[in-house]
């Protein structure tokens, strides 16, 4: 009976549509990366061909390395992303544990209060956030970015993690209590290791918007010493608009780390989405 759904023309049709869309999705990325390895003439003469021995040229990359402080930007992005991720996961898991494990007055209200941030974007508070950072002297520091991203990531983290923590067996936690473990030890030793897959999902969801954000680095930390990769690439490309080799190389350099991370985490990310982590 299900033959109709798997008949040959149908399968070919499905593959044709999917292949076409895959090509649309990958083509621009490929064009940029391939052309970044070519000489200036080749970029314009035959943008759609692969670099040959004749046209292969790394001039763009050498320009980027010589001009921009890409390593510093990269390091800034890494510090901001890793630190924010750490705080989102730690604070988020702690709050999720409190909300899912204990019954106390105001539990539901607290959950709703924290969930508010899932729908209302933190960007709308930018004017007052900048004021706050100016008042506390945190403008042009990575700390400002870490604070903002931690606040931005917490609502979704608490929401997803508390769903998962509800599934951790009560018997296990109660056995721990009988053995005299404190509530803190129960959380760190028993519960956290069990929700590790959920933590990984939250980590991926939190990481991508932080790494890619342009708004907050532009407003809170635009100084040379605190630029992130995204802002650095934006400014660099803006200055080198006419140097196509450099622009293409800078774009490729910005694409590659994300792409590499994605190939490591894509299974986790896709499993996270499809297991109903986002409902």
């Amino acid at each position: 009976m299900s033959k109709a759904a798997t008949s040959l023309p149908r399968t070919i049709g499905a593959h044709a549509v999917l292949l076409t869309y895959t090509a649309i999705a990958l083509f621009p990325v490929l064009v940029i990366v391939v052309n970044s390895f070519k000489s200036r003439n080749a970029i314009f003469r035959s943008p759609l061909s692969l670099p040959t021995a004749e046209t292969f040229d790394l001039i763009g990359y050498t320009t980027v390395m010589a001009q921009g402080d890409f390593f510093l930007y990269f390091q800034n992005s890494l510090i901001v992303t890793v630190a924010s991720l750490f705080f989102v996961l730690l604070f988020g898991a702690m709050a999720a544990f409190a909300l899912s494990e204990y019954r106390f007055k105001g539990n539901t209200m607290m959950g709703l209060y924290l969930a508010l941030g899932i729908m209302i974007p933190i960007r709308l508070g930018t004017v007052a956030i900048l004021q706050l950072m100016v008042a506390s002297g945190l403008v042009n520091t990575l700390t400002a970015l870490i604070l903002v991203y931690t606040a931005q990531g917490l609502p979704l983290a608490v929401f997803i993690l508390s769903e998962f923590m509800k599934q951790v067996s009560d018997d296990l936690k109660n056995a721990g209590r009988i053995d005299g473990l404190s509530e803190y030890r129960i959380f760190f030793r028993l519960v956290l290791p069990l929700v590790r897959p959920a933590m990984a999902t939250v980590a991926v969801f939190t990481m991508i918007p932080i790494w890619n954000d342009l708004w907050f680095p532009l407003i809170l930390a635009p100084s040379e010493a605190t630029k992130t990769v995204t802002l650095g690439a934006q400014v660099f490309i803006g200055q080198f608009v006419t140097n196509w080799n450099a622009v293409l190389a800078a774009l490729s350099l910005a694409i590659l780390p994300v792409l590499i991370l994605y190939f490591f985490f894509s299974r986790q990310l896709i499993r996270g989405i499809t297991s109903g982590a986002v409902k």
Partner: peptide, 15 residues
């Protein structure tokens, strides 16, 4: 910790 960061950096600036 979650409440403090969330309230100080997100909710209060929104208001």
């Amino acid at each position: 910790p979650a409440l403090l960061v969330y309230t100080a950096v997100m909710i209060l600036p929104l208001f």
